[in-house]
Computed example of a mutant assay.
Amino acid sequence: MIQLADDLDRDQPTRDEVIYERVFDAILEQRLAPGTRLSEDKLGQVFGVSRTIIRKVLQRLEHEGVVEIHRNRGASVANTTAEQARQVLVARQAIERAIVLSACEHIQVEDLQRLQLLIQAEQAAIQAQDRGRALRLSGELHLQLAEACGNEFLANFARMMVSRCSLIIAQYETHAHPLCSTDEHAAILKAIAEKDSELAVGLMHEHIQHIEAKLVLSEPSANQDLAAIFAED
């Protein structure tokens, strides 16, 4: 059982929010593969909470499109067809374009500094060949860029797109591909800092295209040990 007491105090997130973040991070880091069954009983045992709390977490993840809940079958990490993957990437292009345009107008110096630190951390993870951490930091960079726009709706859409794209990468990208350099992220951030919206939009478009170019059909394993996955945190 994972103890959550150290993660919580009166000024910190609620228990279900902590568990939500843990599961969301496991999806971003691709430790939870598409199709993995998310048993309420098993997760309740893993985190030491009731099924009611786990059900609330799973329903929130379902709302974001990263978990599927079926009557009489329970919950599992969402599977995405090849056609759905293409549709998600088209949608992400549109969302990322809106985010970049807004960021060029609204981003603050402290936001740029925070994003630069994320790029440095991502590069360190790549050099250490820590694929899971590098992927999580890459997703976090896109999420924080969206949050820097000051538009909660863009941020919410970005969270959904990043998590779905993480699932798509887990399902369709082979690990034969090397981890990406942070050069693309750095170039996008530089263009945003210089308020060059045309360049920033073009760089982001190419960045998403490069992600799509690495995708191939594959059969991910859905038989995973939930206790082992979250014990790694």
Rank of each mutant, 00 (worst) to 15 (best):
L167T: 02
V90P: 00
G74L: 05
A134S: 12
Q87L: 14
L28Y: 08
L32S: 03
D41P: 01
G202E: 02
R133K: 15
R92I: 06
K214A: 12
A213G: 07
L215M: 09
L32Q: 02
A186S: 08
A146S: 09
E62F: 04
V77Y: 00
L89E: 10
A186R: 13
P220F: 11
T81V: 08
I27W: 02
A155W: 05
S197R: 15
V67M: 01
K42Y: 02
L38K: 03
G202P: 03
P13A: 10
D6N: 15
V66L: 04
A124I: 13
A103D: 03
V216H: 13
Q129W: 08
Q113E: 10
G44W: 07
E110L: 14
A75R: 03
T174V: 08
F230T: 13
V90S: 11
D16Y: 05
Q30I: 06
Q144N: 11
I54R: 04
F157M: 15
Q93D: 14
T182S: 11
E64C: 06
E184I: 08
F24I: 04
I126K: 00
L117H: 10
T52K: 09
I126R: 02
A134C: 14
V66W: 00
I69M: 07
R55S: 11
Q12I: 08
L32E: 01
V49C: 10
Q224F: 00
D6A: 11
S76A: 14
I188C: 03
L117A: 12
L117C: 07
L115K: 05
C165Y: 02
Y20E: 12
V46S: 01
L167E: 00
T81R: 05
A200G: 05
I107A: 03
D9F: 12
A121W: 04
T174I: 09
A158C: 07
I229Y: 02
D9W: 13
V46E: 00
L118H: 02
A121L: 12
L28D: 03
E184V: 13
A33L: 12
H185D: 12
A228Y: 03
L141K: 08
R60K: 14
R22I: 06
R22E: 11
H175E: 15
N223Y: 11
D130R: 11
E17D: 14
L28I: 11
R37Q: 14
E194V: 02
L167C: 09
A170E: 04
Q59S: 14
R97L: 09
V100W: 01
L101N: 09
E105P: 01
C180Q: 09
L189P: 03
A193D: 12
E152Q: 14
A155I: 05
D111M: 08
Q12R: 13
E96F: 06
R37L: 09
V66N: 01
Q93A: 15
E96W: 09
V109L: 14
E105T: 12
N156L: 10
C165N: 08
L101P: 00
V90H: 12
N156S: 15
R15D: 05
L226M: 07
T174G: 15
E110G: 01
L189S: 06
V66R: 02
I19A: 05
E96H: 07
V23K: 00
A134V: 07
E62R: 13
